[in-house]
Every structure is written in C-alpha cells, then in structure tokens.
C-alpha cells in the first residue's frame, strides 16, 4: 500500500486541504469530503467575547475524530507569535502536536520569512511539536529546516492564493533530491494539472486551499484535485518514458502490412 507517512502516521490521501475561504461550513464540509483529504489545516483566532454566543463552530462541521487537524500560524509575522499561536492550538486540541508553521514576511506577497521560520521551528521542535513547515523553494533552507527536526518541508510552488502553479520545478527537484522527510507542495496550485505535476515531480503530497475554495464549483474541483493527486502519484511511481524530439520506433508493428495493389488496366477495356 502506497501511503504518505508523516511523523510515523500513515495517510492514504496525499492531498491536504485548507478550510478557509468557503461560503459556509456546509460547503467546507462537502468540498473536503469530495477531496478525500484526511489532514485539514485550521487557523487559530481570537474568539468573539460574548457578542455572538451561538456562532457555529468549525469543529462541528469537521469533527476532529474524523480528520487530522493541522493548526497553522497563518497571519503570523514573527517567530514569537507563531510559537504562541501553536501552543494555544495544542491546548485547544487536547495536546495535538502535529502543526503547520508558517511565518510570513509581508502582507503583500505572503512570502515566508525564512529567518523567523527557522527560529520558530527550532523552538517548536524543542518544545515537542511535530512541525510541518511552509517555506520558500530554497533547497538550503529546506535542508536546514529538516536538520532542525521538522517532520515535513512544504515549499511554495508560487505565492499563497495566486493559483500560478509550479513556477520553479527545478528548485523543487533540488529539494526532492536531498530531502529525507516528506516534501509537500504548499501554496500556488491553481488547477488539477498543477497538482498532478507536483506529484509527478515526486513530491509526497500537495496542500491547497484557494484552488478548491475559490473554484466556481468547489466540490467538483475538490474531486478533480483528488484524482489529479492520485494520477500524478501513480505516474511518478510508474516512471515516465524518456522525452525525445521525435520517435523512429512506431507504436504499431512494422511488418505484416498489406501490399500495394499491382497496377492493372482499368476494367471494361480490352
């Protein structure tokens, strides 16, 4: 059985999805079910204090008994804020220690601040967290994050929410060549072919949110992404044929062809 293994746990699905930007919890639930994802990211935010006591909860729509929650630090711009957020998450989720670390560099691009990310990763690993870390597609930083003890490195394919697809497959390949922990493409996937390409490159999984949530039909796109990740993974494992400009070896047999008719006089003449 080909399974994704993260921090010792096995997952049949190699598609991880976010739970943000959906119209409502019903759409969130339907799309995530269609995606087949087992790991879902959630954000940690201040609760409203007393204004709306009956606000529905994400935990009701997506029961933590059914999904592996991956609390994230989206919106954090410093190592300190990210660490505090994940300590709150661990308390909130009864000691759950698998987390997604992301420390952003600026609100315009949402590009990661890798210096703060490295600091936060070191603190969190020391504190017993299993850290899946969002980072740039820099192979050196990816290796350092792995050396610190992160359980997965998650390079961007392009900017968060951009849907621009995989802009630098070569850097991803450099990361993949050396990584000993799962490599998860996080951010930038726009449509099914992007996810398939990431998997064909040999990535262990793909994490996405906007590509599904902001599709015209999120549930249908979730299904497309599930198929794309599965197809891409199968293609990677199957091993593609080499590329060549043209082929001198046709696919059909070169023998046993019928022969051209010998030239004969037209009928009806002597």
């Amino acid at each position: 059985m080909d399974q994704l293994i993260i921090a010792g746990n096995s997952y049949a699905s190699r598609l991880l999805v976010g739970t943000g930007k959906y119209k409502d919890f019903e759409q969130t639930r339907s799309a995530i079910e269609a995606s087949g994802a087992q790991i879902v990211t959630v954000a940690i935010r201040r609760t409203n204090i007393g204004q709306n006591a009956n606000e529905p909860s994400l935990l009701d729509a997506l029961p933590p008994s059914k999904y592996t929650y991956l609390p994230n630090t989206a919106g954090c711009y410093s190592a300190d804020d990210a660490v505090r957020t994940l300590r709150l998450a661990r308390e909130l989720l009864d000691g759950h220690d698998l987390v997604k670390l992301e420390v952003l560099g600026d609100p315009h691009t949402l590009f990661p601040n890798v210096i703060e990310t490295l600091q936060a990763a070191a603190t969190l690993v020391k504190d017993g967290f299993k850290v899946m870390v969002y980072t740039s597609d820099d192979p050196i930083i990816a290796r350092q994050l792995e050396d610190i003890g992160c359980v997965a490195v998650m390079p961007l394919a392009s900017l968060i929410g951009s849907g621009m697809g995989i802009l630098n497959p070569w850097n991803l390949q450099l990361i993949l060549e050396k990584a000993k922990v799962p490599v998860v493409v996080d951010a930038g996937v726009g449509t099914a072919s992007d996810a398939a390409i990431a998997m064909e490159l040999g990535c262990d999984a793909v994490l996405m949110n906007t590509a599904v949530a902001k599709a015209q039909n999120p549930v249908l796109m979730a299904q497309a992404m599930r198929k794309a990740v599965e197809a891409g993974r199968d293609a990677f494992r199957a091993g593609r044929m080499p590329k060549k400009l043209y082929s001198a070896t046709p696919s059909s047999p070169t023998t046993g062809l019928i022969q051209p008719q010998p030239s004969s006089p037209p009928r009806g003449r002597a």
């Binding site: 959630v42 940690i44 505090r84 998450a89």
Partner: peptide, 26 residues
Amino acid sequence: VPRGTFPHERLAHGDRLEIVVAVGGG
C-alpha cells in the same frame, strides 16, 4: 492556562488574556 486549571486560576488586575478558537484557514 490549561483548561483543567481554570477553576483555580485566579485572575489579577492588568492581566492580558488571549482566548482563541479554531476557524477555517489554509
């Protein structure tokens, strides 16, 4: 502040508190 200790955790003037929940996010 672990949830189990809420009944004993005496708050003090000037405390800064953060109370959070899980919400949808990527």
